[in-house]
Write a protein that binds this DNA or RNA. Structure first.
Lengths: 212, 212
DNA sequence: CGAAAAACTTGCACAGCGTGCAAGTTTTGG
DNA sequence: CCAAAACTTGCACGCTGTGCAAGTTTTTCG
């Protein structure tokens, strides 16, 4: 279940992962403590035990350091997506792949930090923009995987991209409400968002939304 | 049809619009000519006939200057959306509002520049991230307008946000392919993307996509 | 083991970014 | 025409991001 773990890595690779994590953690701690305004690369680097110059060997900016993790699960979701049975509808396959992933699944590695980071991101447009940039990459990954799964050409057929973009949108909406509510598990919100989406009357005109 | 025009503006407001446009145009011209790498605020400001300091009175960064226009149409789309008949389905209302807007409609104000800018944006992750940030604001605007239209509470009901996010996704996919193809009119790609989306089998399992 | 090669860290220098501030200029409204 | 309000500009300053070269650590292989 756990991916990208330090199983087959030499001493060097291991240290790099540790440093990377140390920087990320320091950045988040400082941002949560003193706010994003007073956060500087120098401070992060010092708290992570490296030089400022080394910080930039790992991340392109402080925003990058704060946001990367959100997009890191994409490769895993891609793998899970390719494992889903072929007869399953694309949207359900995406849904299940996401739900069973480490980051968006029922037991996220560090729920509170994830929540805090997401809250921070949504409060700061610069972070949000960076995150959306990462998410766009993930979306691309999903689209390519879906095209493969559907055996279609991504340059000719809009459908894989539409599906990927839709799934990503659903997750974004779910996370926004997860952050707003706070206490419920994330996967519950994701399930709910998928369900609301599925039940939605997208195109039928006339009386909208059966007023129960 | 034309919004935000210098109709009721004093001399001061008018000059501000001119300056704003001069800066934006200079930024795009220089970026297209020499690439984004060698583009500096000092250069843009000089070419626009203002001081570097004044540049920052108008835009927060050079990325901002290059990207703002893309999101400026959102307010107009919002207005058009609220004008659509109430019995029309949300998705169709969005579709029509977008199609009839200046920026995404059949006669965009400056098609070639729009295309060039979008191409530039898609080639540079930093620009893309900034644009996605702006788009997220537009999405929010649409969601609020839809909630109003549907007479529902945006904090309780996920549907307005899901609809807005979906519509925005469709447009993003359409624009990506518009940029790739180049010659076709944008509204055609948007129509096509909406159509493909509507026809898509999102959730039905089994044999996917009726192999005509 | 031990020495050369490869990879990583760090300090330095430097150009560019973004902003507060205060002084100067232009526009506005009475 | 004049005072207030709004806009522009130069200046100063700290932060960002990157190329480069010198030093250190890890790996590789004889």
């Amino acid at each position: 279940m756990v991916f990208q773990e330090d199983a087959f890595l030499g001493r060097r690779e291991q240290k790099k992962l540790e440093t990377r994590r140390a920087i990320r953690d320091a950045a988040l701690d400082l941002a949560l403590e003193d706010g994003l305004e007073s956060l500087t690369v120098e401070l992060i680097a010092h708290n992570a035990g490296v030089s400022p110059r080394t910080f930039f060997n790992y991340f392109a900016s402080k925003e990058d350091a704060l946001v990367t993790e959100a997009a890191e699960g994409a490769t895993q979701v891609r793998a899970l997506l390719l494992e889903r049975p072929a007869e399953e509808s694309p949207m359900r396959a995406l849904h299940h792949a996401i739900i069973t992933s480490d980051y968006y699944g029922s037991i996220p590695p560090d729920r509170d930090r994830l929540l805090a980071r997401q809250r921070l991101t949504q409060d700061h447009p610069s972070l949000m923009a960076h995150q959306l940039g990462k998410i766009a990459n993930a979306e691309r990954t999903f689209a390519v995987a879906l095209a493969e799964r559907m055996d279609t050409d991504i340059d000719q057929d809009l459908v894989p991209e539409l599906l990927a973009a839709t799934a990503v949108s659903i997750i974004r909406v779910a996370m926004r409400h997860w952050v707003a509510e706070g206490d419920r598990p994330l996967y519950e919100l994701i399930d709910m968002a998928f369900k609301r989406f599925e039940d939605m009357d997208l195109f039928s005109d006339g009386a909208v939304g059966a007023t129960s």
